[in-house]
Design a protein around this nucleic acid. Structure first.
Lengths: 142, 142
DNA sequence: ACGCTAACTGAGACTGAGTATCATCTCGGC
DNA sequence: GCCGAGATGATACTCAGTCTCAGTTAGCGT
């Protein structure tokens, strides 16, 4: 549950109000592992009878994504999902079987971007990098 | 318009029927530069009074994406877009200003994936890599 | 050239994600 | 405690994408 506190701190530090609804959403996020969709949280909230509106969940996820307390993923299926994560730039490796995800720092990656800039003449200022595969656990289980 | 023929060949080679609707859609795609959304094509088709149904455009884009004659992109805005491209594995650099896109081969990239596999234990079998920035033209114009 | 059938089509209904609006509520600085 | 900006939940709405189905058509076999 330390994770819920991290999310709450992120909100607080950025000058957002710490409301009941946001606290609950932070809890829901902390209670999930792997990625989750907005719809997942809506279902969770309803299951626990928290009385949080759909709109609030979308709004809060939006804010959290801005603060980078949560990262937006585009799954290969086209679904939009989120993962809780540290607010520094990094990428995710997502297990296509169980959804578990891990952070990966940039590593050799900067050099590749530099190379691409040189070859194309584009000035790259944003990128999306997501990796999908089997996590060690799911490999072992197969 | 050579591009439209490439798209048609891709369909034909894969055993799909070459219908009037598909031919028209190939033309529409060829007539676009940069990325486009399904909605763009629907609007184009309607503007030219081609009488192609919405569903058909979605279906055809689906098929073309399967054949890799077209690539699905997820723009930073969350929109789903497409670009016409060669049917070999590669990635796209997309201009966030004018939408022009260029293909980039894998280059040093394989090594980075290998490194990530070694560090995380994940077995990576799919990835999404999209780069956004300013194309040379838009840079010059600024 | 002709007929046949599976593949394809357009129309329209449907679903579900995400957004907009707005009256009401509440956090937190004073 | 008071008060106002910011946040909330209900509800209505929009819009992408899917599904269904009756009607059409490409292109193979003859």
């Amino acid at each position: 549950m330390t994770e819920a506190i991290a999310v709450q701190n992120a909100l607080d530090d950025a000058g957002y109000r710490l409301t009941e609804a946001r606290r609950s959403i932070a809890d829901l996020i902390a209670g999930r592992d792997g990625h989750f969709t907005a719809a997942d949280l809506v279902a969770d909230a309803r299951k626990r009878r928290l009385g949080i509106g759909r709109a609030t969940i979308f709004r809060t996820l939006d804010v959290l994504a801005d603060l980078r307390a949560v990262e937006r993923l585009d799954l290969p299926t086209g679904e939009h999902a989120y993962v809780a994560c540290e607010p520094v730039h990094h990428h995710h490796v997502v297990c296509s079987n169980c959804g578990a995800s891990r952070d990966v720092e940039d590593a050799g990656w900067r050099a590749v971007v530099g190379d691409i800039e040189a070859r194309t003449g584009y000035r790259i200022d944003d990128h999306r990098l997501e990796l999908f595969g089997r996590c060690p656990d799911c490999q072992a289980r197969a």
